[in-house]
Amino acid sequence: MTTDFQQARAALGARLRELRAERGFTGRELASELGWPQSKVSKLETGRQTATADDLVAWAHGTGCPQAAEELTSRLRSLESRSRSWRRQLAAGDRPVQDTLTAEYERSRVLRAWQGSMVVGMLQTAEYARHVFSQYVDLHRSVRDVEEAVRARVKRQEMLYVPGRTFHIVLWEAALRALVCPPAVLAAQLDRLSGVLGLDTVSLGIVPLGAPLGLPPANAFWLYDDRLVIAEDWHAELWLDDAETVAVYGRVWQALADSAVYGADAHRVITRARRALDAS
């Protein structure tokens, strides 16, 4: 989790502790009142566990301050706007996550992406996406709605052909070589990338493996206009919308984009990866 997330969760815990103290309860007494293990009260107050909205409403009523429920749940919404755990997001499967992302794409006009480990979802073939979704379902042990998620992702790609929206996508060459799928599927995916180079709405840059780098090629992220960053980690997505943070990610993206090649040079890098795949 980010330091900001931890601090926000700790601050929420301090507020919960304050409400309990005002009621004159010990942690054990409040746990008994709510029918919870005492350890849960302790973890929530010390910021070691993230409360649910139901937890916060119960806490407000249990401490005799039902009017505090709205304040507490508002704090939770603010906290979750930064870190959205995959466990919670995937409770109903991958399809709802894809629909949420589609709404952000529709709100945006200039989208910038960095991805160093695989082809970005917006440019994935259906078969490539199918393998990626299956791997993440296995990792998170979530609902297996792979086909629905693939259809939603492919449907979103129709935006690539609609004027008025531009995509500035930068990939590391390593993403073209990662065998996250069978070789035949990757070959088709590379052919798809070659075709994308001709789209008016897409600027596709490839950072060659030997290129000098202004910054280390770290985690993947998307920038939606200059209002929102969505960055991926193994445990969660980070949704970051404060201006200073968005500006940092903008500088990161530009540094990586400056190391990329475009047009005919990008096509040569893709072709090189395709030939290496055929020779393997």
Score class of each variant (00 low, 15 high):
residue 13 G to K: 04
residue 119 V to D: 01
residue 41 V to I: 15
residue 71 E to Q: 13
residue 45 E to T: 07
residue 160 L to V: 10
residue 171 L to Y: 02
residue 65 C to N: 13
residue 164 G to H: 06
residue 90 L to T: 10
residue 218 A to D: 12
residue 100 T to W: 09
residue 213 L to D: 06
residue 55 D to R: 09
residue 34 L to N: 07
residue 222 W to N: 10
residue 105 Y to P: 02
residue 74 S to R: 15
residue 61 H to R: 15
residue 47 G to Q: 04
residue 125 T to D: 03
residue 139 L to P: 00
residue 186 L to K: 07
residue 49 Q to S: 14
residue 12 L to W: 05
residue 83 S to F: 02
residue 181 C to P: 00
residue 205 G to T: 08
residue 55 D to C: 08
residue 279 A to H: 10
residue 25 F to G: 01
residue 38 Q to A: 15
residue 270 I to G: 01
residue 272 R to T: 13
residue 227 R to F: 00
residue 200 D to K: 12
residue 244 E to R: 14
residue 230 I to E: 11
residue 77 R to P: 00
residue 259 S to Y: 04
residue 23 R to L: 05
residue 57 V to D: 05
residue 273 A to G: 08
residue 201 T to A: 14
residue 168 H to D: 11
residue 28 R to C: 00
residue 155 K to D: 15
residue 231 A to H: 05
residue 212 P to H: 06
residue 88 R to T: 13
residue 278 D to W: 00
residue 225 D to F: 03
residue 253 W to I: 09
residue 112 R to F: 03
residue 9 R to G: 05
residue 261 V to Y: 03
residue 230 I to A: 10
residue 159 M to Q: 14
residue 60 A to Q: 09
residue 126 A to S: 14
residue 230 I to F: 00
residue 4 D to I: 07
residue 34 L to K: 09
residue 20 R to K: 07
residue 91 A to N: 05
residue 262 Y to W: 12
residue 93 G to M: 07
residue 99 D to K: 11
residue 77 R to L: 10
residue 146 V to S: 04
residue 274 R to F: 03
residue 279 A to R: 14
residue 46 T to S: 15
residue 35 G to P: 01
residue 239 W to S: 11
residue 14 A to W: 02
residue 220 A to S: 15
residue 58 A to H: 04
residue 95 R to S: 11
residue 43 K to I: 00
residue 182 P to N: 09
residue 280 S to T: 13
residue 121 G to F: 03
residue 38 Q to G: 06
residue 167 F to T: 08
residue 277 L to H: 06
residue 28 R to E: 15
residue 107 R to A: 15
residue 128 Y to K: 10
residue 65 C to T: 12
residue 32 S to I: 06
residue 62 G to Y: 05
residue 146 V to K: 02
residue 153 R to D: 03
residue 124 Q to S: 09
residue 170 V to H: 02
residue 126 A to V: 04
residue 237 E to I: 00
residue 104 E to D: 12
residue 48 R to N: 12
residue 249 Y to N: 07
residue 45 E to S: 02
residue 53 A to R: 12
residue 56 L to M: 10
residue 199 L to Q: 08
residue 206 I to W: 01
residue 237 E to R: 10
residue 179 L to T: 07
residue 53 A to S: 14
